[in-house]
C-alpha cells in the first residue's frame, strides 16, 4: 500500500471544503469511489477528480500535494491515521479531530485545530489567527491534543482553549491565550499585546519576558520553583520540535490573571 496522494491540479479561485477527505471517511472506498466524491467549492460541488490527481491507495496515510490556502477543513473530525500536506492549508485544519496526525510543510489559515479533542497537528510554517480556538459564539476551544507551530501564530491563539497544548517555536500574535479556560500554551519567541486577555485558567509558559511585558490585569505572584515544569519538559522530549531540545527550567516568575475575571490563569516566565 502506498499513501493516498491527492495532488491539486490547478490554482483555485474558490475555497474547497475538504472535510470528506479524512482516513475515517475514506475507509472502505477505492480510488474510483474517492474520485467521484463531491466536494463543496463555492456554490458548486465538484468531484474530487476534477480538483485532484489521485494516486496511491492507503486511506490511512493521505497526502495533499501542491496544496493551497484555499483548501479548508482538511482533517475534519479525523480520529486516526495520518494526513501530510505539502504546501499551505486553508481554514479549520484539523477541526474537531480526536486522534491521528496532521503535518503540513507550509502555512495555515484561520482556526487551525479549532475545537480539536485529540491527536497532533504540526505546522512547519506559520498558523493564522485562532489556533486551537472555539468557533465564533462557542464556549470551548480545543479540549485535547497537541498543536506544534514551528513558525508564528496569528492573533487569539488558544481563544477559549479548554485543554491540550499549543507549542509555538516562533512568535505568537496579539491576544494570545485570550479567554483561555485551561490547557497550556508555550511560546519560545515573542508574544503580542494583550497576552492572556480575559484568561480564566490555564498556563502560558514563556522562556523570556515578552516585549510588551505583562499587562496590569495580571498580578505578580513572585518567583517560584514549580515541580510540574520538569515533568512537562520531559514530555516535550519525544516531540519532533525545538521544544524537545529546550533546556528545561522550573524556576519562574508567576503572574496570575486576568484579574478582570476569575483571575486563575497564570503566565510563567523563566527567570
Amino acid at each position: 500500500m502506498t499513501a493516498l496522494t491527492l495532488k491539486l491540479k490547478t490554482d483555485l479561485a474558490q475555497r474547497v471544503d475538504c472535510s470528506p477527505l479524512t482516513p475515517d471517511k475514506l475507509t472502505g472506498k477505492d480510488v474510483a469511489d474517492i474520485a467521484a466524491m463531491e466536494l463543496v467549492s463555492g456554490r458548486l460541488t465538484l468531484p474530487v477528480e476534477e480538483l485532484f490527481d489521485i494516486s496511491g491507495d492507503d486511506v490511512n496515510d493521505i497526502r495533499f500535494e501542491n496544496s493551497s490556502a484555499k483548501l479548508d477543513h482538511i482533517g475534519h473530525a479525523m480520529s486516526q491515521g495520518r494526513i501530510t500536506i505539502n504546501g499551505d492549508a486553508g481554514a479549520y485544519l484539523g477541526q474537531f479531530m480526536t486522534g491521528g496526525n496532521i503535518e503540513i510543510t507550509g502555512n495555515t489559515f484561520i482556526y487551525t485545530g479549532c475545537e480539536m479533542k485529540g491527536g497532533q497537528i504540526k505546522i512547519n510554517g506559520n498558523a493564522g489567527d485562532f489556533v486551537g480556538a472555539a468557533r465564533s459564539g462557542y464556549k470551548n476551544g480545543m479540549t485535547g491534543g497537541t498543536i506544534i507551530v514551528t513558525g508564528n501564530t496569528g492573533a487569539r491563539t488558544g481563544d477559549h482553549m479548554r485543554r491540550g497544548m499549543i507549542l509555538i517555536e516562533g512568535n505568537a500574535g496579539e491576544y494570545c491565550g485570550s479567554r483561555m479556560i485551561s490547557g497550556t500554551i508555550a511560546v519560545l519567541g515573542d508574544v503580542g499585546k494583550h497576552l492572556g486577555y480575559a484568561m480564566k485558567r490555564g498556563t502560558i509558559l514563556l522562556p523570556k519576558m515578552p516585549q510588551h511585558g505583562i499587562t496590569a490585569n495580571f498580578n505578580d505572584c513572585g518567583s517560584h520553583t514549580l515541580a510540574f515544569l520538569p515533568l512537562m519538559f520531559a514530555s516535550f522530549k519525544k516531540l519532533d520540535s525545538k521544544f524537545a531540545k529546550v533546556e528545561g527550567f522550573s524556576r519562574v516568575q508567576r503572574y496570575a490573571g486576568d484579574v478582570g475575571g476569575i483571575g486563575m490563569g497564570e503566565i510563567l516566565v523563566k527567570i
Binding site: T184, M232, M264
Partner: peptide, 8 residues
C-alpha cells in the same frame, strides 16, 4: 486555587 495539568 488548585490547578490541573494534563501532561502526556
Amino acid at each position: 486555587y488548585q490547578i490541573s495539568k494534563m501532561i502526556d
